[in-house]
Simulated scan of single mutants.
Amino acid sequence: MKILHAVTLHSPSHAFGGPVRVALNLAKGLRERGHEARLLALGEGFDPWPVSVEGVPAKLFPARRLLPLGFSGMTSPALLASASRLVRDADVVHVHLARDLVTLPVALAALRVGRPLVLQTHGMVDPSERLLAKVLDAVAVRRLLRGADAVLHLTPHERAGLDAVVGAPPLAQAVRLVNGTPAQEERPPLSGPPRILYSARLQARKRPVDFVDAAPAVLAVHPDAEFVVAGPDEGELAAVRARVTALGLTDRFTVPGALSTPEVLTELRRAHVYVLPSVDEPFPMSVLEALSVGVPAVVTHSNGLARDIAAAGAGRAVDPGPQGVAEAVLALLDPSENTKASHAARALAAESFSMDAVLDTLLGVYEDIRR
């Protein structure tokens, strides 16, 4: 089966975050099962220009920023001109849909030429009062959600949001598909001072400053603790650095910027605890990666993985804000608690979020819509 995975942007800094990671994981898993999966996206920041990404054949078009709207204002005239031809070559077109000028045109091209179309929104298409969102919903998004052969959602909350976007009647072709993570080598036995890691985009919704503000309470108990704030800047880097300086903690914090996938795994294997203090996070790949390595995770209650983590004892779910984060980190720095949570994290990743289980569900969807 030929499957085309379309996502907005791929870059060395992984600026677009989780959707690209999911697309690559799925494409790699599909290829391991004998299918011809490819990646289609904008590209930015490469030298030399890649023709594959992590072993997945990729067609990347140089990104052009037409409007000052972040990812929504990026496109490629060459990609738009090629969209119909590219989707015709696929047996299934799987679009990681956002309100942007890449995935919307590719999905519309698939609908226009009658190729089986799967949409996966990763929480990026939800009810919005923004003018641009309303325009795009009226012009394209509702048509695509109604016309797709399958719409994949992560959580009941995301499904409710998609139904709200399209209006009555609710989507009939919605299918729940959780994110999966490949099996990873377990972190080695802990050594050295406590190391607490944040590795995600530095964006306001992800609240990296809360991570910084939790540090003094942790340091009061563990004065040798080390903190790492890693990830591409999306507006919060200056605030993070300013807060670290204001608290007098420059010797306790490392801010390495964006990390490659191997570098992220290296940091995870050194970490005692992983923290993602964001709110309304649908289903973060960074947390799944931490669990797969055996790093206990601290998330807020509105995180799509919060219930699973709390029920399994694989970390802690807390109220937003630095106080809850600090208390959870301190609890997980207890050696016996950390060991128990680490084993639970590995088990949760393997049993509930394995790539094999996700691929079994996804291939079932593909087969159903091709009949």
Rank of each mutant, 00 (worst) to 15 (best):
L24Q: 05
G235Y: 07
G321D: 07
A230T: 04
L79C: 06
V166H: 01
A290R: 01
S72D: 05
L202S: 14
F46G: 08
R112E: 11
A217P: 06
T75G: 14
Y198N: 13
V221R: 15
A225V: 01
E267V: 02
S76H: 10
V102D: 01
D213P: 14
V299L: 05
A242V: 05
A312R: 13
H222P: 00
A328G: 09
H343N: 15
A239S: 15
H10Y: 12
A168F: 15
D319Q: 10
E289C: 03
V53D: 01
K340A: 11
V7T: 11
S72R: 09
L162K: 05
V329Q: 01
L359E: 02
A311N: 13
A239D: 15
A148N: 05
S286P: 00
A341K: 04
L108K: 13
A217R: 14
L97T: 05
A258N: 06
V166D: 03
K28R: 15
T254Q: 10
A63K: 08
G34Y: 07
A174I: 07
R146L: 10
A133D: 12
R130L: 10
T155E: 08
V255K: 00
A238R: 14
R241M: 11
P216C: 01
P322K: 15
F16D: 01
G167Y: 06
P48Y: 14
V53Q: 09
Q173L: 06
D360T: 15
G55S: 10
F227I: 06
G147H: 03
L348C: 05
A174L: 08
V178W: 04
A6G: 14
P284V: 00
A306C: 10
Q184E: 01
P188K: 12
I3K: 00
T300S: 08
R115E: 06
A328F: 11
E263A: 09
G17N: 06
Q120L: 11
A220C: 02
Y274I: 04
S191Q: 13
R88Y: 06
H272D: 12
R31E: 09
A331G: 12
H272W: 13
G294N: 01
E54M: 09
G248C: 11
V264T: 07
H94Y: 05
S199W: 04
R346G: 04
N303K: 02
